[in-house]
């Protein structure tokens, strides 16, 4: 039986390889954008509070900083303790039009040696982990032009 594809968090991203986007919300009164999405009340202290509606974030941004995780993170990060730990890179990306920095894992195979601050990256669909029933999906950052 095929696994069900389920986002690791509902409502944070949508789309396939061609149209994948992170999803935030925007306040109808002050136009502030929030990610992770704010669905109850605008957090701008100078805003009386408008309607918060879903808004896709820019696909591309520039590396604000990056690092990696050389040791196995603790639960609730899901790993297979039977397998040797494989480090992965994490990238903080600045989206120009939103002026927001969003952290994410790098796409598989991208290491810190491949990255520089200021490099252009794009958001792509990724898999966080799989169990017998479910493929847990997430977002990854990947350098453009690779």
């Amino acid at each position: 039986m095929a696994r069900t594809r389920t986002p690791v968090v509902a409502g944070w991203f949508a789309g396939g390889p061609e149209d994948f986007r992170l999803l935030g919300t925007r306040c109808s009164a002050c136009a502030c954008v929030f990610f992770p999405r704010e669905d109850t009340h605008c957090r701008n202290p100078g805003c009386a509070g408008g309607e918060l509606t879903k808004v896709p974030l820019s696909r591309r941004g520039r590396v604000w900083s990056y690092t990696d995780s050389r040791y196995r993170p603790p639960s609730p990060y899901v790993t297979d303790p039977e397998l040797p730990w494989e480090p992965y890179a994490l990238i903080a990306v600045e989206l120009e039009s939103e002026r927001i920095v969003v952290l994410g894992q790098a796409a598989p195979g991208v290491t810190v040696a491949d990255l520089t601050v200021g490099m252009e990256v794009e958001v792509v669909p990724g898999v966080l982990h799989e169990d017998p029933e479910t493929t847990w999906t997430t977002w990854h950052w990947r350098p453009t032009g690779v």
Binding site: C30, A31, C32, V33, F34, F35, P36, R43, N44, G46, W64, A92, S97, E98, R99, I100, V101, V102, L103
Partner: peptide, 16 residues
């Protein structure tokens, strides 16, 4: 505007 523990993203500085 500084990515801070335990946040996954900063606030947006585009409007304010």
């Amino acid at each position: 505007t500084v990515l801070d523990l335990p946040d996954i993203a900063t606030d947006s500085a585009a409007v304010v």
